[in-house]
């Protein structure tokens, strides 16, 4: 399977490459539109700050390429937030694949939201073989509220989007590549999703 990880300035590609390798998949990393369009699966990781990440995507033209992709696409962490319309992090306009907005966690809780938190979901192909309530690893200071496209939530201190999905676009706020066996299963589930299976 031809899995391509999006190369830009905010991608933690190495962890994702290792996680895929543990699943027996040798992915490539690219910022080439042709390579991305030809991929069977595209993974869009993200660690860092929203506005510099978007600047990088605009500079390379990927801001126009990514929303047009039609194969199963997985945003991770900042990669989820950047798929929305807007992030409160330095008032950043994002890719607008989804129309949600990322907000900053309130000062009433410790920020970043860092550590293992329980994932709550109704049955969904991303979570096949995973029990609702399983723990996954989060590190983030901004969150996406619960929206119609939310397919999993976590609580900190209120429910927020831990995963969203629509059409071929899937995204996880947590780090599947750092979430032990649960995370590995979710990554595998994404790879197993058949093109056109999105709802």
């Amino acid at each position: 399977m031809n899995v391509v990880i999006v190369r830009y300035n905010a991608g933690n590609t190495r962890s994702m490459l290792h996680a895929l390798r543990r699943l027996g998949v040798e992915a490539q990393v690219s910022d080439d539109a042709q390579v991305l369009r030809a991929a069977d699966r595209v993974i869009f990781p993200g660690v860092g700050e929203a506005s510099t990440a978007m600047q990088s995507l605009r500079r390379s033209g990927l801001d126009g390429v990514l929303p047009e992709l039609r194969q199963p696409f997985l945003g991770v962490c900042l990669g989820l937030q950047l798929l929305g319309a807007f992030s409160a992090e330095n008032s950043t306009r994002c890719l607008n694949v989804f129309d949600f907005k990322a907000e900053k966690f309130p000062a009433s809780v410790k920020v970043p939201h860092m550590g293992w938190n329980a994932l709550h979901f109704e049955p969904h192909p991303l979570f096949a073989g995973v029990a609702s309530g399983a723990y996954v690893y989060f590190v983030h200071s901004y969150y996406v509220p619960v929206v119609p496209e939310t397919v999993a939530t976590a609580d900190y201190p209120f429910p927020f989007s831990a995963a969203v999905a629509r059409d071929n676009f899937y995204a996880l706020q947590f780090h599947p590549e750092k979430s032990g066996e649960t995370g590995a299963r979710i990554l595998k589930n994404f790879l197993d999703i058949q093109p056109g299976a999105g709802i």
Partner: peptide
């Protein structure tokens, strides 16, 4: 370590 571990 990074190649082996699946936790942070």
């Amino acid at each position: 370590i990074a190649a082996t571990l699946d936790i942070p």
